[in-house]
């Protein structure tokens, strides 16, 4: 469904990503692991059109994405959604308006349908709060789950996650992980999760991609990871068992 081919990106004279290639099938959960600052966030931004690559192509259901204009991206962003590292909820809008935001702009749903959807997805992320309240009044964990709902409500085919469980308490971490799995198994949503949390990866990933210094060090099915033959990967695995 998604094919990334020889993607490269540099800022000034620093190469952030080099020769990154991988594929994503429907319903798959792929984790992108690696040390901090290896360009994992940049990779996601390239896939959703927030940045333009210097080299390589991205194919979504046969369409090449890297040369699309901003207007064309608006159509694609309904199908490829991104959940940011920070909740990034809009401070000046209340919870309801935050969730309805994408629906209002990218779909033709009427008010009644929007209300139903908002209710449904609040249920999905298991949040019970006042729809009129504002993001600043909510806890970080709640904000993160709302941010998830805000993107998922568009029912995209691919979801991109930038460090979804970093900084969360165990309960919220478990909730988010369960949600990602649910989306993938029940709604056939493919997910790319950028993380440095090995535990989460071993819990829910189907495949794992390991980035080091902007290049793909290793990629394969989750059960194959112990046979990677790469030192860095084994180091990550060791920290896990500790």
């Amino acid at each position: 469904m998604l094919r990334v081919s020889h993607l490269g990106k540099s800022f000034a004279d620093q190469t952030i990503l080099k020769n990154v290639s991988f594929e994503l099938d429907a319903g798959e959960i792929v984790f992108v692991l690696g040390t901090s600052g290896t360009g994992k966030s940049v990779l996601l931004k390239l896939l959703v059109g927030l940045l333009k690559p210097d080299a390589g192509e991205v194919y979504f259901k046969g369409q090449e994405l890297t040369q699309k204009t901003e207007a064309e991206w608006n159509l694609i962003r309904q199908k490829i959604g991104m959940v940011f590292q920070q909740p990034a909820l809009f401070d000046s809008l209340n919870v309801f308006e935050n969730l309805a935001f994408g629906l209002r702009r990218l779909t033709q749903l009427d008010e009644y349908q929007i209300q139903k959807k908002v209710a449904a997805f609040l249920e999905l992320v298991q949040i019970r709060c006042d729809l009129q309240s504002f993001p600043s009044q909510l806890s970080y964990g709640t904000q993160k789950r709302l941010s998830f709902a805000r993107t998922a409500i568009l029912e995209p085919e691919i979801l991109l996650f930038d460090e979804p469980t970093t900084g969360l308490d165990p309960q919220s971490t478990y909730a988010i992980n369960t949600l990602i799995q649910k989306m993938s198994k029940e709604l056939r949503v493919s997910s790319i999760v950028v993380s440095h949390d090995m535990e989460c990866a071993m819990a829910i990933a189907d495949r794992i991609i390991f980035l080091d210094k902007g290049e793909v060090l290793w990629q394969g099915a989750k059960d194959q990871i112990r046979h990677s033959g790469k030192d860095l990967v084994n180091q990550f695995l060791m920290d896990l068992t500790l």
Partner: peptide
Amino acid sequence: TMRVTEQIDALKCLGAD
């Protein structure tokens, strides 16, 4: 503040300019 908390990126991803 909106920029560094990624709200501006979020706006783009949700179809707003």
